[in-house]
Write a protein that binds this DNA or RNA. Structure first.
Lengths: 228, 228
DNA sequence: GGCATGTTTCGCTGATGATCGAACTATGCG
DNA sequence: CGCATAGTTCGATCATCAGCGAAACATGCC
């Protein structure tokens, strides 16, 4: 005799490691094929197929056939809200059993973390934005974009803060796995990575690695030096 | 080789039916003893003990010994945020396998749903507040308290809207299990139920039932008739 | 048509984890 | 001191479900 909706069913859908990894990948708001998600989660195609069917039945994702591919995407904003809330919860747990960081130097330097930038460079950029006063630390471990920040992100990086919408946390700190210090996540973090791609400052490398182009390396180095 | 925090671990903690039921109970922001939670979840004390240990290890709850009791409470607002996000996700799923509603007429009429009021009366009240313009429907299936609403809730029910704090959704619709129409949830829903208790309009009945006193029945009937 | 690729279905196996009975410890009461 | 109540630990059982191999199905390309 329970009242209200069944939260356990939804949570246990997210609670499987393979499924949660797929959902994390989908947080970038793009649609992924079943095969891509299988590879991302490190499972075979059969298993992935079963997982996708369950996620769809649970209303967490929508599936669309297109040719011989089947694209999956998060069902709506409510789903990403829930995932992000869980992410925030999970982020604050110390993880003693985890390795201190990626062994690959390229990964240490710059990599993608879901839909934003992580690694050495990402942490340096966060420091830089804070030092310039583009971001301000606010209560409860949060960050806020300042007025100068709105101008700065627009002028220097071509990011229109206003266009990012009203989503509650426009930017929030995400603890960097290798650096153990925060880098930018949230809509602004996503926009930052997209800006770097579209300006040709970075390219996708092996796996999660992100390779800086010569021009990108120079521009970012100049930015960071500027603030010290 | 995963990046970022482990969302699956947290989600699977919530994903167990017994544990999720305990967490739902704890959403009322009070501290419950281990035994109470065991009864609430319909499991034995041993099992509950194991669950509580896991929830604590996962950082979802905090435990405090006091004499021979052990009180459990949600760790912080981040946890209830995540639970509410999941609740919102779960609420929109049709549940064909579930019975249409409680058989007990008393339960149909008025009962508590987590920390707010549910049942016939609760839905009537929601209709009433909307009709009076105290609440306004806003985008994305939400509700907002209007200026007249702030005065009304204060004058008629003694609820100080300003004192409810800045928690993002001050009020949100919660689909009523028996009526299949929304009633008030969120901080305002909680305050409403508390107001009814403190004014002596309702008393706790058997289980989840809420019994209206003679005076309470009259006052609510007058309120609702007013708006038609 | 024939072939490669992407996806799904079927059947089985194995591991995880929830559950409870029983016994044990800790606290409060008289 | 006993006694009662609250909570925990231990061990064993049992159901659930992720996972994969094998084979089928679907689609696009030549």
């Amino acid at each position: 005799m329970r009242d209200g909706p069944d939260i356990a069913e939804i949570a246990s859908l997210i609670g499987d490691p393979a499924r949660s990894q797929m959902l994390m990948a989908l947080l970038d708001r793009r649609a992924w094929t079943a095969g891509e998600l299988a590879r991302e989660a490190g499972i075979t195609a059969q298993t992935a197929s079963a997982h996708l069917a369950k996620l769809e039945a649970g209303g967490l994702i929508v599936l669309e056939r297109q040719g011989r591919h089947r694209y999956a995407a998060l069902a709506d904003g409510g789903v990403s809200d829930a995932l992000e809330a869980l992410l925030r919860l999970a982020a604050r747990q110390p993880k003693p059993k985890r390795r201190p960081g990626p062994r690959d130097p390229a990964l240490r330097h710059a990599r993608s973390c879901y839909n934003h930038l992580a690694g050495e460079v990402a942490v340096q950029l966060a420091d830089h934005f804070l030092a310039l006063g583009w971001l301000k630390a606010v209560a409860d471990d949060g960050w806020r974009v300042t007025k100068p920040g709105e101008r700065g992100f627009g002028d220097v990086l071509g990011i229109d803060i206003g266009a990012l919408g009203e989503r509650k946390p426009l930017v929030r700190p995400c603890l960097d796995w290798s650096e153990r210090r925060p880098h930018l996540a949230g809509p602004l973090g996503t926009a930052l990575l997209e800006s770097l791609f579209s300006r040709g400052w970075v390219r996708r490398g092996e796996g999660r690695a992100v390779a800086f182009t010569r021009r990108g390396e120079e521009r970012v180095a100049a930015l960071v030096k500027d603030s010290t």
